[in-house]
Design a protein around this nucleic acid. Structure first.
Lengths: 264, 264
DNA sequence: ACCTGAACACCGTTCAAGT
DNA sequence: ACCTGAACACCGTTCAAGT
């Protein structure tokens, strides 16, 4: 089922404000114990990451970037924070709930410029490129986004600002919303291809090695049964993702533009 | 990492042929024991699904359709076949390997028509619609396809025949391959949105209920901070997927067509 | 060649109990 | 209000052993 991942709109802002404010009076704050004092050696929680909803989300993102989606477990996150897995459940409810928060956190990385009505198509292109870059930084995000309708505070803010750009360009209501939704999912589809489930080691983006292997295999097929594949094998090899992404943008944005001017 | 999911091209054909051939002499084949005879009651494997690579794949697909991706476990498959999980590993190597086979199996549902050079753009549209329908039948396939470069026998056959259509239409080599790859991933992106991780109960496709809930929530936002969202809330509600898919096809195919005629 | 049971090293989540 | 350890019901996979 679809889950509408909502957060109270004020939540994040409030938290951010609290964080920005000067730290609370640290009167009896952490003082390191004298070196001779023997403390009960429970894991000695590293308090630079105090356990809180925000800290859990940030730890999860760091872990995801470093180890990939398969390696993310509640136990691993808790370990990183110096606690047990059970402790996380008070803050995030479930792993699924945590991933909702993680997704909104990542959406927060998008910076949407103020509308410049004259060049809205180029602004749309820039947004798409930025979306791609975020997916390359966080290769796990496409998979995480499956089945989540982004409605957290950052998602709402993002949508609002993108729609402002389209509306300022005179795109009619229906086309603006449809086009916005299609743009997101089209880029996601592209990224589905480009990043796959790349492991952290890999430099993100389809490893050239894999592309070459595939192309080589295609070239080796029996010509009589796969004439087109064999003939086009070299094309599969030199499929530069940047180039292909720009082609996709060209097709997509010019399509929206021509429909927008036809309707107004 | 990307896995190139390859099967020897001849494998499936050979297996199919073997299956089609008359069954081996069933001289001392299974005769049901007399009703009074007490047999050791091990699970009494239902032999209508003999355990084999093909049977495992088919069982997996049936289970996936019925219960969704999260519910698929090696134990569940084995249970359905009347064995233990360990027995599957002789046939499929790993769950991941099984999913490779499952993906190729599903790709095999695509029927690609022979090229009709005059109407290749419409043929491309039809292929995309068919891809969508398969994703609606098997809502888990988009997620399964992440990180898999489809190179099984059915995938190769599919690619070959699609490329034949594009080439017959006079699409230049590079654009044919790029366009083919982009079409697949664009439809996948759309399906990522449309099916999410729909559970088996749901009628496949974004539940109208969820769309309404989202739209209602958007309409309830503070107007001063989300003027565009609030104004466009109704558009979010009546986003008919069929309509949006056709818009996407229009944009995409017309983009390919105009570039094809510009280059030739 | 094929199948099996039992074990290993994990999961997400719950819950009574602690402070 | 927040955290904890221990337990529950699962996972995928391995492996020695069976036929």
């Amino acid at each position: 089922m679809f889950k509408v991942s909502t957060e109270p709109v004020t939540g994040a802002k409030a938290a951010a404000a609290a964080e920005a404010a000067p730290a609370a009076p640290a009167a009896s704050a952490a003082v390191p114990p004298p070196p001779w004092q023997r403390l009960p050696d429970r894991p000695a929680r590293r308090r630079r990451d105090p356990i809180s909803r925000e800290a859990i989300v940030e730890t999860a993102v760091r872990l995801l970037d470093a180890e990939g989606l398969d390696a993310l477990s509640m136990r691993a996150i808790a370990d990183e924070l110096g606690t047990g897995a059970a402790s996380l459940y008070w803050h995030v409810g479930s792993k699924d709930g945590l991933l909702d928060l993680v997704m909104d956190h990542v959406i927060g990385e998008q910076e949407v410029p103020d509308p410049e009505p004259g060049r809205w198509p180029e602004q749309v292109r820039e947004l798409a490129r930025q979306q791609r870059e975020i997916c390359l930084r966080h290769t796990w995000i496409v998979e995480v986004s499956i089945g989540r309708i982004p409605m957290g505070p950052n998602a709402l803010n993002f949508s609002e600002r993108v729609l402002a750009i389209l509306k300022s360009g005179g795109v009619p209501d229906t086309l603006a919303v449809q086009g916005y939704l299609l743009m997101i999912s089209t880029v996601n589809g592209f990224m589905l291809d480009e990043v796959g489930d790349a492991q952290p080691g890999a430099p993100a983006g389809v490893p050239q090695e894999a592309a070459d292997m595939a192309s080589q295999y295609v070239a080796s097929l029996p010509t009589d049964r796969f004439p087109n594949m064999v003939a086009l094998a070299p094309e599969f090899a030199r499929a530069d993702p940047d180039e292909r992404f720009e082609l996709l943008l060209d097709i997509f944005v010019s399509g929206i533009v021509s429909r927008a001017s036809a309707q107004s």
